Simulated scan of single mutants.
Amino acid sequence: MDVFTIQDWIFRLISLVLLCVEVWAFVNAVRYRPDAYIAASKRTKGFWAALTGIALFLGVLSILGSSMFILTIAAIVIAGVFLADVLPALRAVMARAQGRYR
């Protein structure tokens, strides 16, 4: 086993972990109601579903062996922005709508 084979397997393992994060972001993007996005002032559901869907597609490409590292980075940044900024806002809006205040 040479160094490049080990490096390839490490990259694929990291890509798999990142793909899981991108799947999590996409599932959450399509799970919430469209009016929750408007109430949270976070663009629209279609915008975030499309963006996280593109991130998911780029993540699948990285698993299949695409060597475009910049696309892998772009995909995880999109998913990270959704999970760190949009998702907490959506959860807060839905908690207020259900009568649970945080």
Rank of each mutant, 00 (worst) to 15 (best):
T5P: 10
V93I: 14
G46P: 03
A49H: 11
K45M: 13
W24N: 15
T52M: 15
D85Q: 10
C20L: 11
F82Q: 08
A92G: 11
V77N: 07
L83F: 08
A39F: 00
M94G: 02
L64G: 13
I73V: 08
R96A: 09
L16F: 04
V21G: 11
G46E: 00
V17I: 08
Q7D: 10
R91Y: 12
I78G: 06
R96N: 14
L90V: 01
G80S: 06
I10N: 01
I6N: 12
E22R: 04
Y32W: 04
R12V: 06
V93R: 15
A55V: 03
R31S: 14
T52Y: 13
D85M: 12
K42I: 10
A36L: 04
L16R: 00
A49F: 14
L90S: 03
L87G: 00
T5D: 11
R96G: 09
A95Q: 09
R12D: 00
I54M: 13
L90C: 03
T72Q: 12
F4D: 12
I6M: 11
F11Y: 10
R102F: 06
Q98T: 09
Y37Q: 08
I10L: 02
V17K: 03
T44V: 03
P88V: 02
F82R: 10
V86K: 03
E22W: 00
I70V: 07
R12F: 09
F57A: 15
E22H: 01
K45I: 04
T44P: 06
A55M: 02
F47P: 00
V60E: 14
T72F: 08
I10P: 02
W48R: 10
D8K: 10
A84S: 11
G59I: 12
I76P: 05
W24H: 14
L61W: 13
K45S: 09
V23Y: 00
F47C: 01
V77H: 08
L19Q: 05
V60C: 15
L58D: 03
L56R: 12
I10E: 01
R102W: 05
L56W: 07
G53D: 07
Y37D: 06
S66T: 13
